[in-house]
Design a protein around this nucleic acid. Structure first.
Length: 323
DNA sequence: CATCAGGGCCCTG
DNA sequence: CAGGGCCCTGAT
């Protein structure tokens, strides 16, 4: 398969709204690894499709939490116009909440005696997704009813068959295929990649996106209920997938209604030190405490424990997540 | 070797 | 609105 080699064409400087936590925003330790992005402390790489082209993006931390500054290298196989650069700047701003004002959330966090150390450690972290809606749905679908190992395998299979290999800045990553490219791919061909019944979901989702039955751009400006409705109409998108999309792709920080059983177990441990607390109680307690920032607050505590897991052995967590 | 549940969802009754 | 079935895989 052809590898697209991109070279550096332009460099942008972006000044995020302070406080901004670079590593907490660009790297989510709870997510499974993929070949669409890469990270090391202070540096992030990803591919991105905009205006009909594939770009490589390298984002470097050039500031601090209190005085944030990002240097963004744009890689392409042709000249990058100022319209391209503007589109990339604009898209990154949305995907990573770069201009988001976290003031009200921080105010809440300061009043939280118990978890303030965690909020302080990650001060300025935002919800994020490097992918557009279609890409994030694909990720969410391979996540369904599967262990992490199998999810990784399924996404790898899909990307090596349909993705575009991109090389830039010494990295080799993939860019997602476009929905319309699956038009002539049969469900059986997808099943051959060992993705099981998800083949049907991906087939139908791709059709819907190719036909423009869902408008990501428009939904970014819609309220949560409208967006949730539109998402749940998509074949293969249920309560948990919708939750992921609402929080990561649409930046609704209050998305804390659906709690899956495996999440319930981890929340019970994190918030109560018990093995099992009812989802009703968890939902009520968290919503009361963090209001419209319920999911963001939980996200801080959630990512923190997965971050710690990289360095220390956390017995109960290993038991619960089943890699 | 068989059985089972897993970071859900759709469909049926 | 509860429950069965679904693809595949590694664990038991």
């Amino acid at each position: 398969m052809r590898v697209h080699t991109l070279t550096r064409r332009k460099t942008l400087t972006i000044v995020p709204k302070a406080p901004f936590h670079f590593d907490g925003t660009f790297h989510k330790p709870s997510h499974f690894p993929d070949q669409l992005e890469d990270w090391e402390p202070g540096v992030f790489w990803q591919t991105i499709r905009l205006r009909g082209h594939i770009f490589g993006v390298k984002i470097e931390n050039q500031g601090t939490v209190a005085k944030p500054k990002l240097r963004v290298g744009i890689y392409s196989d042709r000249l990058v116009s100022s319209a391209d650069a503007d589109a990339i700047r604009h898209e990154l701003s949305w995907l990573f909440g770069i201009d988001e004002d976290l003031g009200a959330f921080i105010h809440l966090a300061k009043k939280d005696r118990r978890f303030f150390p965690v909020f302080k450690k990650w001060l300025g972290m935002r919800s994020s997704s490097a992918h557009n809606l279609y890409g994030l749905i694909i990720v969410a679908v391979v996540l369904q009813n599967a262990t992490v190992r199998r999810s990784v395998q399924m996404l790898k299979a899909l990307l090596s068959r349909f993705g575009v290999r991109v090389r830039f800045d010494g990295k080799e990553l993939y860019a997602f295929w476009q929905p319309a490219e699956l038009e002539n791919v049969t469900e059986q061909k997808l099943r051959d990649l060992r993705i099981g019944y998800r083949a049907k979901f991906i087939k139908r989702l791709s059709q819907d996106f190719a036909l423009g039955k869902i408008n990501e751009h428009k939904l970014r400006g819609s309220d949560k209920a409208t967006t949730e409705d539109a998402l749940k109409k998509l074949y293969g998108v249920g309560p948990e997938t919708a939750r992921i999309l609402l929080f990561e792709a649409f930046r609704h920080y209050d998305t804390f209604e659906h709690i899956a059983p495996w999440q319930q177990k981890i929340y019970s441990r994190l918030f109560y030190g018990k093995s099992r607390v009812s989802v009703e109680k968890i939902r009520r307690d968290i919503q009361r405490r963090y209001g419209s920032y319920a999911m963001l607050a939980v996200h801080y505590i959630w990512e923190d424990i997965f971050w710690r897991r990289k360095h220390e052995h956390i017995e109960w967590l290993d038991r619960e997540i089943r890699l």
